[in-house]
């Protein structure tokens, strides 16, 4: 039996051990580099996710802004951006996103922001994971004798 077989098994084991050793050496020497590479890609991915979300939100608000009065739209915003909690601030002409001590903004077509009582707001904050109803309205503004367009933003749970 099997001196042959035993030898072959021995060879296989040595090759396997050799390969394992080489793999471990390669992994250990490459670990910081691979780690850094993964971290770079994650950062780029998070930034892309944030910007994509912001652009999508601004598109939806601009679309609603271009519709007639009475139109409304529901938006559900994601739980996290790249595993980070975040919040969005909507102002008259811009939307600002803040997460993981990062900040970015996008311009929108100017429109007033109001609450359920048609009271003008300087800004409205949306928090992660919420569903919001956005409706286009016509309001009496203190600044102007002409009625002005506005968007009412209400969180669904608050309604």
């Amino acid at each position: 039996m099997s001196l042959n077989l035993k030898d072959q098994q021995g060879q296989l084991n040595i090759e396997f051990l050799f390969c394992t050793l080489l793999t471990i050496i390669l992994l250990v020497t490459m670990a910081p580099y691979l780690n850094q590479n993964i971290s770079t890609n994650q950062n780029i991915g998070n930034n892309l996710e944030g910007r994509e979300f912001l652009n999508e939100l601004s598109d939806k608000i601009n679309q609603l802004n271009s519709n007639s009065y009475g139109n409304s739209k529901y938006i559900t915003i994601p739980e996290t951006i790249g595993n980070y909690n975040y919040f969005v601030t909507i102002r008259e002409n811009e939307i600002i996103l803040e997460y993981d001590s990062n900040k970015c903004k996008v311009k929108i077509n100017p429109i007033k922001i109001v609450d359920q009582n048609n009271k003008e707001l300087y800004e409205k904050r949306l928090f992660n994971g919420g569903t919001y109803k956005l409706s286009k309205k016509l309001i009496d503004s203190n600044d102007s004798i002409i009625n002005q367009s506005a968007i009412e933003i209400v969180r669904e749970n608050d309604r």
Partner: peptide
């Protein structure tokens, strides 16, 4: 470049 072009900066 991704930070600059996506304009996502530290606060």
């Amino acid at each position: 470049i991704s930070i600059n072009s996506l304009a996502i900066y530290p606060e």
